[in-house]
Amino acid sequence: MKILILGGNGMLGPWVVDALGDRHQLRITDIGEPPETTHEWRQIDVSSLDDVVDAAEGMDAIINLSVLRPHRKIAFDVNTRGNYNMMVAAVTHNIQRVINTGPHYQLAGPSYEDWDFDLNPDMPPQPGTRLYAHTKALGQEIDRVFTTKHDVYLQTLLFYHLYDPGDIGNGPGGSGVESLGKDMMTPYSIAWPDAGEAIRCAVELPLERLPSRAETYMVFADVPHSKFNNSKARGQLGWQPRYHLESLWNKR
């Protein structure tokens, strides 16, 4: 599959490239400096409609990893309008598969997380007005509206805290327990390699197995507190987390 990756040289990008690189033909793009890679590379700005449409030519799928958190204007440019540009590019080039990513609270904002349990990806979004959550939620809504009018399939994978498993004493190479008891973080955590693998599962899932043209997944390690629910990611994507990040929540 020929895959365009937007925001491909950020934090998550290299892990996605690791998961996909041997199996697919990648066109990695980012606004920043090029990565060390054997794959095709382009420097583009996702807030430029022309840049994104040009970059998507000849592709079979688009993965959006672009994100900008703190700057008020650029957050809207990237997180909101960048999604519009991506969907126009998909429609322009008849690309059926679009994979979007974002933080869990673009869907399950404080009005859910402060109150409830078993939070799942099929709830109506309540992002609130926190800039990062709000701008990503608007981008997600743009994507969803496009799927109601065009033959484009959207899979959205929600992440939050991402850990290097070697740093927190879990799985191969584990070395320490420094993060134990950071309960505000443990409800939604995942190891970087598992995040990359989840995106590979989404990319390779046959479109005919998607129940609708817009599916969302909460993607995090198996943790015991049932604040959120990752069963849809496991069941529909066929994804299995390899790292359980146990030192975050188990005193032993």
Binding site: L49, F76, R81, Y84, V88, H134, I142
Partner: peptide, 16 residues
């Protein structure tokens, strides 16, 4: 399109 989306999301957000 870019301007309409900008005015109706970012500018509304800033105003509110």
């Amino acid at each position: 399109a870019s301007d309409l989306l900008d005015v109706n999301t970012r500018c509304t957000y800033n105003l509110l």
